[in-house]
Amino acid sequence: MEHLSPIVKFSWGDLDLAAIIMILVTSIVAFVLARLAVRNLSVENPGKLQNFMEWVVEFVSNIIGTATDFKRGRVYLSLGLALILYIFIGNMLGLPFNFITEAHGHATFLGMDLYMNGQEEAEFAWWKSPTADASMTMALALTVIVLSHIQGFRHNRKHYLKHYFEPWPFFLPINLIETVAKPLTLGLRLFGNIYAGEVMISVILGMGWVGIPALLVWQGFSIFVGAIQAFVFTMLTMVYIGQASIHEEGH
């Protein structure tokens, strides 16, 4: 049976409780992890978690250094860190387990009616990666793309405006398509990878006991995919911001 999202219908739209819960859980985990890492900050004798966090900082610094010029891309270090932490933790959270409730005829959560798609029997999935939802990945993608456009317009106006007409003015439509395609590919790539991973997990779960080795293998692979996708998202964010807002000398 297909798992439904626990959605509450309001006049102004649908409220996806699972998404909200997962956004909260991911954010809290990310924040708590970061806070624990900086709890006992030390210059000379950093703790394990601090070391790890500093490694992440170096890692993101390298990403920025590869994508653009680190000196000028430095202001985006916090953004890159927040992105890679949030996406990686989000990707990982959906892997280990799921939390499903069954409902017969009627279901409520804190007094709110859950939308049951007109069915009598429904199963609600409360636990998933926040990044396995296109609306959430698109939110992240649009945020960074809009940011890149704003920063490009603010700091690099001449080149930012000119790049729509390059190499020749009649390339404008192609450049506009590229502008639209960037956030779409950025968001949907992440969504597709993680969503596919979770679909695959539920398919393997459907196989029963036989599927356990396959499940182990696939979860291991999903960890890999989740890490790669977090890296790719952050990398592309920095590339886009760099393209738009940091004009390299001598080109």
Partner: peptide
């Protein structure tokens, strides 16, 4: 695609 999720995610990520 859920617009509420979309908006909540933007706000939540901003706060985070």
């Amino acid at each position: 695609f859920n617009w509420t999720n979309f908006l909540i995610q933007i706000i939540a990520f901003g706060i985070l």
